[in-house]
Structure formats: structure tokens, C-alpha cells
């Protein structure tokens, strides 16, 4: 995938197709803007961070989350049904023995309903091609590498299945409230390209 291109020609092309479809009754006036607003208001990594912080502080929830994430996240008022179709969500938890990383080698499958739009690097051929061949090398480029005796498992998302990583809870955070813990969790941590 190449970088973001100069956009005047394609911008005119998109406007033209929108107007064409509107003139044929296949788009409602204002529909595109409303959909963009709804999309931008939809997901954000803060949702994933809430799930992680709750799992860190409530072992019962953590168990339900790992067993059946689609059902468990409804306890927090979240859902994977926000997109065009409900996707299966599998949540995987990091440990001293195993670190998890998520990719979509075929395209860009990502839990948008929970995390919002994915970063460009997640959609790039560079990440998709390499993380399954050399996950440790890729993590090193992201600035963090699990200990040598930690196994790395890479999960390949698909049209029907999405993945979310529960990072290990950092040491020295025993006294923190759930909201404070949530602020420690980053988008890369939820994908598995950061420790937290």
C-alpha cells in the first residue's frame, strides 16, 4: 500500500459518484455526513482500555471475558454489533509465558466497533507480511520486546473473527482505581505491539 496520495482528482471522483447515486435515489441527502459523524463517534481505544482495566480488577469478569467475550463485554455496555454485522470477538491475555499479537494478513480486520478506526500501520503490507514471519523483530521496531523465554502467539483476524489483547497489569499498580488503570492501556497494547 502506498502512502496517502494527493487527493484533488479522487476527491472530485467521489463527490461525482455521490451526486450520481443521490440523483438516482440510492443515497439520501445528508446521509453520508450522518454516517461519518456516527462512525467517528463510535469506537475508541478507551473502550478496550475499560475492558482491560475491569479484567485486571475483577477475576470473575476476566474469566467470562476469555471464555465468551461477545457476551462479557455487554456487562460494560459494549458490543461488537456496532458495524455492518456482529463479529465474533476473542480476547487473549498476556502472561509471563505467552505474549499475544493481532494482525489481519488478508486485509485490515480489526475490532472497529470497540477501538475505532485502525492505525495505518496495522493496514500496511509491511506489518501484515512481517509480523507472522518475525513477530519478535517487529515488536522490537515498536520499541518493546518480550523476554526471550516468553512465547509469542500471532492471531490472524478475519471477516468473522476479531481479537483483543489483555496486556499484563504493570507492577506497582495495586493501589490504582479502575479508571486510573484504564488510562495506562494504549491502543498498541490492545493490539499487542506494546507491553501495555
Amino acid at each position: 500500500m502506498s502512502d496517502h496520495h494527493p487527493s484533488s482528482a479522487i476527491s472530485a471522483g467521489v463527490r461525482h459518484v455521490e451526486a450520481l447515486l443521490e440523483s438516482r435515489g440510492l443515497l439520501d441527502p445528508g446521509e453520508i455526513d450522518a454516517r461519518i459523524d456516527a462512525f467517528l463517534a463510535g469506537g475508541s481505544p478507551a473502550n478496550g482500555a475499560r475492558i482491560v482495566a475491569h479484567a485486571w480488577t475483577d477475576p470473575g469478569f476476566a474469566g467470562r471475558l476469555l471464555a465468551d467475550a461477545n457476551t462479557a463485554i455487554r456487562e460494560l455496555g459494549l458490543s461488537m454489533a456496532g458495524g455492518l454485522q456482529e463479529q465474533r470477538l476473542k480476547v487473549v491475555a498476556n502472561s509471563a509465558a505467552e505474549h499475544h499479537v493481532v494482525v489481519c494478513t488478508l486485509c485490515s480486520c480489526y475490532p472497529i466497533a470497540l477501538l475505532g478506526p485502525s492505525p495505518s500501520w496495522y493496514k500496511s503490507e509491511a506489518y501484515r507480511s512481517r509480523v507472522v514471519r518475525d513477530p519478535r523483530g517487529v515488536l522490537r521496531e515498536f520499541g518493546w520486546e518480550p523476554p526471550a523465554d516468553t512465547a509469542i502467539t500471532v492471531w490472524d483476524a478475519s471477516a468473522e473473527s476479531r481479537y483483543l489483547v489483555v496486556p499484563r497489569r504493570p507492577e506497582g499498580t495495586d493501589g490504582l482505581a479502575e479508571e486510573e488503570l484504564a488510562r495506562l492501556v494504549t491502543r498498541n497494547g490492545l493490539i499487542g505491539t506494546a507491553a501495555v
Binding site: 487527493s7 463527490r15 453520508i32 454516517r35 462512525f39 492505525p119 500501520w121 500496511s124 509491511a126
Partner: peptide
């Protein structure tokens, strides 16, 4: 190489958002 963009916006141009909504 993998390129990370700090504070990346959801879309890099308006037309990208329009394509997604379309």
C-alpha cells in the same frame, strides 16, 4: 519498513471518510 504515525487522525482527507460512508 513499518511506519508509525504519532497522533494519527482517523482519516487523512475528507474523501476517505466519504468513501467509508458511501
Amino acid at each position: 519498513a513499518i511506519v508509525q504515525e504519532p497522533d494519527e487522525p482517523p482519516f487523512h482527507a475528507d474523501w476517505e471518510a466519504h468513501v467509508l460512508a458511501l
